[in-house]
């Protein structure tokens, strides 16, 4: 390719220098034009298909309405719900877009993201992406004291420390629930939520 390029330059250099520039820029312009065209169209068609993170974000929002936290997790009856997202910018951005003007139980919704455990302040739901799962052991110790509803996305199912785990089943987003962990963290989940779960882990006596 490089050799070809050199040959072409030496061949055209006799004609005029500006010709070379135009012919090169023409190629570039055409390339960019095509790329924009292709991407433009695909971005349009795009929205007809749903992406996993969009549904996960919508579900995280829904979970707020089907869960209840100890009273001491709210400063007053209007203080906001807080969702903290660990390591999933796509879900965080989507949440920020969709919950802006939403209210559940007279509470507005705040979205935070955190790169480490120390940055999780006062969250009600903590979403832990698959690549941040290594934080779970430390996070679950914190969750027992602060009643975090920990949501994960492990492809194999519930992981120690998580209450709800997203899982793709037949190209759909489903979730597993651990009532054991929910009890440990002091969170109650509504029967509506349980009825949609793929599987429920309960304490056996």
């Amino acid at each position: 390719m490089l050799v070809l390029g050199i040959h072409r330059q030496t061949a055209t250099v006799k004609i005029s220098r500006s010709r070379i520039v135009t012919s090169h820029s023409k190629v570039w312009l055409f390339l960019f034009a095509s790329i924009f065209l292709i991407f433009g169209f695909s971005k349009t068609y795009a929205q007809q298909t749903l992406l996993d993170y969009q549904v996960k974000a919508a579900m995280l929002y829904k979970f707020l309405g089907y869960s209840s936290w100890p009273d001491n997790r709210f400063s007053d009856s209007h203080s906001p719900y807080r969702i903290c997202v660990l390591g999933a910018d796509d879900i965080r951005n989507e949440l920020q877009d969709i919950v802006a003007d939403r209210v559940i139980n007279n509470r507005s919704i705040e979205i935070h993201s955190a790169a480490s455990i120390d940055q999780i302040v006062d969250a009600h739901i903590v979403f832990v992406s698959s690549r941040m799962e290594k934080l779970l052991p430390k996070l679950s110790a914190l969750a027992e004291k602060n009643s975090f509803l920990i949501v994960t996305e492990n492809t194999h199912g519930l992981v120690p420390g998580s209450i709800i785990n997203f899982r793709m089943v037949d190209k759909r987003i489903g979730f597993d629930i651990s009532l054991v962990t929910a009890q440990d963290y002091g969170i109650s989940l509504s029967s509506r939520l349980l009825s949609v779960a793929i599987s429920i882990k309960e304490r056996r006596y």
Binding site: T44, Q47, Q48, T49, L50, L51, D52, Y53, Q54, V55, A58, M59, Y61, K62, Y66, D90, D97, I98, V99, R102, S130, E153, M168, K171, R172, I173, G174, F175, R192, L193, V196
Partner: peptide, 26 residues
């Protein structure tokens, strides 16, 4: 499209959300 989708997604029930086919881009 995005604008209308955002609102329609949140207005779906959990069951409906769980029944939507999605593409994984994780």
């Amino acid at each position: 499209n995005a604008e209308s989708r955002q609102h329609s997604l949140l207005d779906l029930s959990l069951e409906e959300l769980a029944s939507l086919p999605v593409i994984s881009v994780s």
